[in-house]
Amino acid sequence: MTAHEAVHAPAITQISRAQDATAAIRRELTDCWTAVINDGGAVVPMDCPLPPVTAPVLEPAMERIVRGLSPQRSRLLLATVDGALAGWLLLRREQHPLVAHCGVVNHVQTHLRFRGLGIGAALMRHTTVVAREEMGLERLQLSARSGLGLEDFYRKAGWTEVGRWPGALRVAPGDDRDDIMMTLTL
């Protein structure tokens, strides 16, 4: 571990029950999400408008995430540095019996002031351990928007691209991006 990594090594915790997601934690998660979306991040929920967004617009989506938390089905993983939220993601198990051995990773994000410090990579490493050892998952999947370099980030973390839906995401008129499907065998 380098000195840079030691100074900024995040603490990774998880929340797997709605009652453990306090109002303060929900507010921090929503504020991070708002900042990431407004900076061009690819974590816009399906029922929200395109940026710019405000925290109140995202609060219903955050409440749905929190209500769905369950140790075997859905967990929030949070990265903190010196007590401040540095990033988070959602790990959830597919519900249909045919794919219940698979998990989905959503909303991977690093707070703007912690970018470039390895927060996202630390979250992804921890996610694989939680998925395999605590949730008994065998495979993970995620979707990433092209044009942001996300596929390179995930490849470095061991993920494999398994398909693309060309031009599926319209960020703005004339700015269509591929939806990139990726998988990781645990």
Score class of each variant (00 low, 15 high):
Arg132Leu: 13
Lys156Tyr: 08
Val66Gly: 03
Ala144Val: 11
Arg145Trp: 13
Arg64Lys: 14
Gly87Leu: 00
Cys102Asn: 12
Ile65Trp: 10
Ala11Trp: 10
Gly40Lys: 00
Leu58Asn: 11
Pro49Tyr: 03
Pro173Asp: 13
Thr80Ser: 14
Asp179Val: 07
Arg113Asn: 08
Phe153Gly: 01
Trp88Arg: 07
Ser16Glu: 15
Ala18Arg: 03
Arg73Phe: 09
Ala172Val: 11
Thr22Val: 04
Gly136Gln: 05
Ala168Glu: 09
Ala3Ser: 12
Asp82Cys: 02
Gly103Trp: 00
Glu151Pro: 04
Leu89His: 05
Arg67Ser: 09
Thr128Pro: 06
Ala86Met: 05
Ile12Glu: 13
His96Phe: 11
Pro71Asn: 05
Gln72Ser: 15
Leu76Ser: 02
Ala157Ile: 02
Ala35His: 02
His8Val: 08
Gly40Trp: 01
His8Lys: 04
Gln109Pro: 00
Glu134Phe: 03
Leu184Ile: 10
Phe114Thr: 07
Ile119Phe: 10
Ile25Val: 12
Leu50Trp: 12
Gly136Pro: 08
Gln95Tyr: 14
Gly120Gln: 04
Leu169Trp: 09
Val57Thr: 10
Leu123Arg: 07
Leu78Val: 13
Ala55Ile: 06
Gly167Ser: 02
His96Trp: 09
Arg164Thr: 01
Trp165Glu: 15
Ala172Gln: 05
Gly68Asn: 15
Ala6Cys: 07
Gln109Ala: 15
Ala157Thr: 00
Ala11Asp: 13
Gly163Ala: 08
Gln14His: 15
Ala131Asn: 10
Phe114Trp: 08
Arg132Trp: 07
Leu76Asp: 01
His126Glu: 15
Val81Met: 01
Val44Asn: 06
Phe153Asn: 01
Ile65His: 06
Arg170Ser: 11
Leu150Asn: 15
Met135Gly: 02
Met181Thr: 05
Ala121Val: 12
Asp176Trp: 08
Leu184Ser: 09
His96Ile: 14
Val162Asn: 04
Gly83Arg: 11
Asp179Pro: 03
Gln141Ile: 08
Trp165Pro: 02
Lys156Ile: 01
Ala6Arg: 14
Val162His: 05
Leu76Lys: 08
Leu117Trp: 12
Pro71Gly: 02
Glu161Pro: 02
Gly147Trp: 02
Leu169Ile: 13
Leu150Trp: 00
Gly68His: 11
Arg17Ser: 06
Met135Trp: 01
Ala55His: 05
Pro52Glu: 05
